[in-house]
Design a protein around this nucleic acid. Sequence first.
RNA 1: GUCCCGUUCGUCUAGAGGCCCAGGACACUAGCCUUUCACGUUGGUAACACGGGUUCGAAUCCCGUACGGGACGCCA
Length: 465
Amino acid sequence: MTIRTRFAPSPTGLLHIGGARTALFNFLFARHHCGQFLLRIEDTDRERSTQHAVDVILEGLAWLDLTPDEPPLFQSSRAVRHAEVAYQMLASGHAYRCYSTPDELRQMREQAIADGRPPRYDGRWRDRDPADAPAGVAPAIRLRAPRDGETVVDDLVQGAVRVANAEMDDMIILRSDGTPTYLHAVVVDDHDMEISHVIRGDDHLTNTFRQVQIYQAMGWAPPRFGHVPLIHGADGAKLSKRHGAVSVLEFEAQGFLPEALCNYLLRLGWGHGDAEIISRDEAIRLFDIDAVGRAASRMDYAKLTHLNGVWLRQADDTRLTADVLRRLRDRTDLVLDDVAAARILALMPGLKERAKTLVELAESAAFLARVPPLPMDQKASALLTDEAKATLREIAAALAATDFSAGALDAALRAYAEHAGKKLGQVAQPLRAALTGSTVSPGIDATLAALGRDEALARISAASR
RNA sequence: GUCCCGUUCGUCUAGAGGCCCAGGACACUAGCCUUUCACGUUGGUAACACGGGUUCGAAUCCCGUACGGGACGCCA
């Protein structure tokens, strides 16, 4: 049997990290088992679905490199098929028409809650003569669910979960306007798409029983299910639009690398011994659904940030340089020409070692695109005393005599320090201030080399005046 | 309220009856390294929710309790 999984978000909100992780797990599971990963947009709620949300989902998945193997299926395009199946069930006696109005149902629910009973449809049209149908009321179609026995789901993550059928009422499968409900559409689509494994959020676990009843009514073999626990916000509360549930694209804006976010998400709810830094290829090799934990987990930005630093250091210099230039593009205080780009690329090995996010990286690279005289931060200007300025003029002369390679510069600096009876730090820090306008940068030799002879000497000259 | 699920350091996790007076990672913290800042490195603080069983032996199995989460819609 070919393994086929799907990610089925509804375009009524953003693609948040919970959804992203669900997509990742589906993707990894499919790849691990040499199967296919599909995408289905559940846009049956026409009122709340938006094109913008669809775009965000598609963009987000592309950014995370979780591209589906087939074009996305839009659930709304399958309304005819959903209705067809509902009528089949009606014909076979597995469903019936219900003429209760939404208002009536609401009263029924409120009454049940007031009486301390579970809020459920009482099945008043289940066995009623269709001749009793009130005129002018369009009926909804309900599943004639079994009332005895129990329904069992052998979940890949949660294990065997069972519920008494008496706990469930007859759910609506086709609304009075002829459109399918979610529970029904999902089953029909998963069946028609030949989905073998449904991996989704824990919040769907209790829905699964009702879906299984539809499979049974249609005589279809249900897929295997795996319900992964939800991700909570940093404070332990459920992810909501108000906090934490930001779009995955927001993570991009905040300077996180997609491979870092995937690595983080993978380790949230799943573990493999002591493995922490896991590439996509390794993830495909190691991941399996049975190692997914059963408890909800919290979003931890500190750990994500750490992981991002690890991946940043491993990332390609050209790629990072392009990202930095993009983030700095709109800065009016910088000159982002080819010269600046070349400097940033040249210093990237040292810059990426010191940054945890792409935002920090861009900020730390900005000095390379400045035109002297540089703005000095407080600590830098404090370093540039009259004595230091005099020293800088001497250093400039020593540096000018080299070929401006990092090795030669380092040697010249050390020789000068020894000659002047100073510690290297006393030499390097004023120089750093002059070159960068701050007290933090990659190694001073590499920084000098990246700037190049003319620019470096110009900056030293400007700062030592 | 009813049903379902969960509970190992602050956080993410390893752990499938003896290897665990519980390991790793992040965070925090003390050193080392050092040309600043990072990185790296060596230590440290810190957890099996609680109570009963079962067993020679339980973080691991069973039952309760507490707490947390989810679902109960002509939303998805």
